Computed example of a mutant assay.
Amino acid sequence: METYVLGDIHGAYRALRQVLERSPFRPGLDRLIHLGDVADGWPETPECVELLLRIPNSIWLQGNHDWWVAEWMATELPLERAYRIWLRQGGEATYMAYQRGPKEQIKKHFQAFFAKQRPYFEDENRNLYVHGGYDPTISIAKQEPFDLIWNRDLWRYGQEAHHYTECFIGHTPTWPASTLPCQRANVWNLDQGAGYSGRLSLMNVRTKEFVQSDAVPELYPGVKGR
Results as ranks from 00 to 15, higher is better:
residue 51 L to P: 11
residue 51 L to I: 11
residue 53 L to A: 11
residue 53 L to H: 13
residue 54 R to K: 14
residue 54 R to F: 06
residue 54 R to M: 14
residue 54 R to D: 15
residue 55 I to A: 05
residue 56 P to R: 10
residue 56 P to L: 10
residue 57 N to M: 03
residue 59 I to D: 01
residue 59 I to N: 03
residue 61 L to G: 01
residue 62 Q to M: 15
residue 62 Q to F: 01
residue 62 Q to G: 07
residue 63 G to F: 06
residue 63 G to D: 01
residue 64 N to K: 00
residue 66 D to A: 02
residue 67 W to F: 07
residue 69 V to A: 09
residue 72 W to C: 00
residue 73 M to V: 01
residue 73 M to L: 15
residue 75 T to Q: 11
residue 75 T to C: 01
residue 77 L to P: 01
residue 78 P to M: 04
residue 79 L to A: 12
residue 80 E to P: 04
residue 80 E to I: 07
residue 81 R to F: 14
residue 82 A to T: 15
residue 82 A to F: 13
residue 82 A to Q: 13
residue 82 A to N: 12
residue 83 Y to L: 04
residue 84 R to H: 05
residue 84 R to T: 08
residue 84 R to N: 06
residue 89 Q to I: 03
residue 89 Q to K: 12
residue 89 Q to E: 13
residue 89 Q to C: 10
residue 90 G to P: 04
residue 91 G to M: 05
residue 92 E to A: 09
residue 92 E to N: 02
residue 94 T to P: 05
residue 97 A to R: 02
residue 100 R to F: 06
residue 100 R to V: 01
residue 102 P to W: 08
residue 103 K to Y: 03
residue 104 E to L: 08
residue 105 Q to L: 14
residue 106 I to R: 13
residue 108 K to D: 09
residue 108 K to A: 11
residue 109 H to E: 07
residue 109 H to Y: 01
residue 111 Q to E: 15
residue 112 A to L: 15
residue 112 A to D: 12
residue 113 F to T: 12
residue 114 F to E: 09
residue 114 F to R: 03
residue 115 A to H: 14
residue 115 A to Q: 14
residue 116 K to L: 15
residue 116 K to P: 11
residue 116 K to W: 11
residue 117 Q to G: 07
residue 117 Q to A: 09
residue 117 Q to K: 03
residue 117 Q to P: 04
residue 118 R to D: 10
residue 118 R to L: 15
residue 118 R to E: 14
residue 119 P to K: 09
residue 120 Y to K: 02
residue 121 F to P: 00
residue 123 D to S: 02
residue 125 N to D: 10
residue 126 R to S: 13
residue 126 R to H: 12
residue 127 N to G: 03
residue 127 N to M: 02
residue 131 H to G: 04
residue 132 G to Q: 02
residue 132 G to H: 02
residue 133 G to E: 01
residue 135 D to C: 01
residue 136 P to L: 12
residue 136 P to I: 08
residue 137 T to C: 06
residue 137 T to R: 13
residue 137 T to N: 09
residue 137 T to E: 10
residue 138 I to Y: 01
residue 138 I to E: 08
residue 138 I to A: 08
residue 142 K to D: 13
residue 143 Q to V: 03
residue 143 Q to W: 03
residue 143 Q to K: 02
residue 145 P to Q: 10
residue 146 F to K: 13
residue 146 F to T: 10
residue 147 D to V: 05
residue 147 D to Y: 04
residue 149 I to R: 06
residue 150 W to Q: 06
residue 154 L to H: 10
residue 154 L to E: 07
residue 154 L to F: 06
residue 155 W to I: 08
residue 156 R to C: 07
residue 159 Q to L: 13
residue 159 Q to S: 09
residue 161 A to T: 05
residue 161 A to E: 04
residue 162 H to W: 06
residue 162 H to P: 00
residue 163 H to L: 07
residue 164 Y to C: 09
residue 164 Y to M: 06
residue 164 Y to S: 07
residue 165 T to D: 07
residue 165 T to C: 02
residue 166 E to K: 11
residue 167 C to H: 08
residue 169 I to F: 01
residue 169 I to R: 04
residue 173 P to K: 13
residue 174 T to G: 04
residue 176 P to S: 14
residue 176 P to C: 14
residue 177 A to R: 12
residue 179 T to I: 14
residue 180 L to Q: 15
residue 181 P to S: 12
residue 186 N to K: 12
residue 186 N to W: 10
residue 186 N to I: 03
residue 188 W to R: 06
residue 190 L to R: 07
